[in-house]
């Protein structure tokens, strides 16, 4: 149901909701960036619509709400294990259409592939998603190429226009809270074109895995993993066991974000590692995003948010890599025919 209401009304609803939910939205962290006097737009708790950064793309995605950077799985003493408590409150997450598609990718891994992940599910089951519209495409976005520019999988859509707020609610609670508000048809803002357009090769022959094409990336990539950490669809983690320094017999096991670009990702006990070359790591990531994931799960993994291109300190463009790869594949196929 669509409504026209006021920021004041929405903030009052948020205030009520805050008893049961933490509200997360992209917000401006002043001076929090890599360089001096540079802000970061990333997810944090909000209590007021005015805190939400609608005008810019967030540098980091919402994924940290459902997959915390560092998440304690259980506590242990010598012979006992105790599952870490779930947060007492649920979550409400503001996010854009592309990120809602990213949520599906997370669901695929954490709810389907190999079974249900307890920790993900217990957060996911208590999370509501509020769509933020996109009036214009941001730099490096290529959602249209990935077909993620619109999404229907939201609990509410919310657009702030000064004091006016347009809401499209698919959430009973919100409908009840907005009873009496002016009803109005509300359609989520979405873009129909991006400056960046990518063409994904249908198939990438395995003979191209060792193509010199990847060597250039090997020379440029510094293996910092930023592209993975900002990506809403990168969901890898590594386990860490820690013991408390004041009680060496007790400790906790936690999982932390991992990156297939960062050293150590494939290292096995005993020292064997599989992709020491950074170009091969690039190949592994790129093909996962736009090739092998689709073969396994039916959709491309990449949702075209372009955050990897926004963040790369070495100006490696993932989008351009796909387009160059497409050309390479076409040329290779032509040569073979």
């Amino acid at each position: 149901m669509g409504y026209q209401t006021t920021a004041e009304k929405i903030n009052a609803i948020f205030s009520d909701l805050s008893k049961d939910y933490l509200i997360y939205a992209p917000k401006r962290f002043v001076g929090d960036g890599t360089f001096t006097y540079i802000d970061t737009i990333r997810y944090g708790e909000i209590t007021d619509l005015a805190e939400i950064e609608f005008a810019e793309k967030s540098n980091y995605s919402f994924k940290e709400v459902l997959l915390p950077i560092s998440e304690t799985l259980f506590y242990f003493t010598e012979n006992e294990m105790k599952e870490a408590d779930a947060p007492k409150k649920g979550a409400i997450v503001f996010l854009r259409s592309c990120d809602l598609h990213g949520l599906k990718r997370m669901d695929t891994i954490y709810l389907e592939n190999g079974g249900v992940d307890t920790y993900y599910k217990r957060l996911r089951d208590h999370t509501k998603f509020i769509l933020m519209g996109c009036e214009n495409s941001f730099e490096n976005c290529f959602c249209v190429s990935m077909g993620t520019q619109t999404s229907e999988d939201y609990d509410a859509y919310l657009k702030v226009d000064g004091d006016n707020v347009l809401v499209d609610s698919r959430w009973d609670y919100l409908d009840a809270a907005l009873a009496g508000a002016t009803q109005a048809p509300v359609i989520a803002d979405s873009v129909t074109a991006n400056d960046t357009v990518v063409t994904i090769p249908e198939t990438v022959p395995q003979t191209l895995f060792d193509d010199p094409f990847w060597e250039e990336y090997g020379n440029r990539c510094i293996a910092c993993g930023r592209c993975n950490f900002v990506c809403p669809t990168c969901t890898c983690f590594t386990m860490q066991d820690i013991f408390y320094t004041d009680n060496g017999k007790a400790g906790e096991r936690r999982r932390v974000w991992a990156s297939c670009h960062v050293d150590g990702y494939t290292d096995m006990a005993g020292g064997h590692a599989f992709r020491n070359d950074k170009g091969q790591r690039m190949r592994f990531k790129v093909l996962h995003k736009v090739n092998d994931y689709k073969r396994r799960f039916g959709t491309h993994m990449c949702i075209g948010c372009g955050r990897c291109d926004d963040v790369c300190p070495e100006y490696i463009s993932f989008a351009n890599c796909i387009n160059r790869l497409n050309t390479l594949v076409n040329d290779t196929v032509k040569e073979e025919n």
Binding site: I109, C236, F237, M268, F274, R296
Partner: peptide, 21 residues
């Protein structure tokens, strides 16, 4: 095959090769 694994249940990603866990 032997690979690095952190979860054993298709989540952590370390053992993935192409479309195979």
């Amino acid at each position: 095959q032997e690979r690095k694994m952190c979860c054993g249940i298709g989540k952590c990603g370390h053992c993935k090769i192409d479309d195979t866990y």
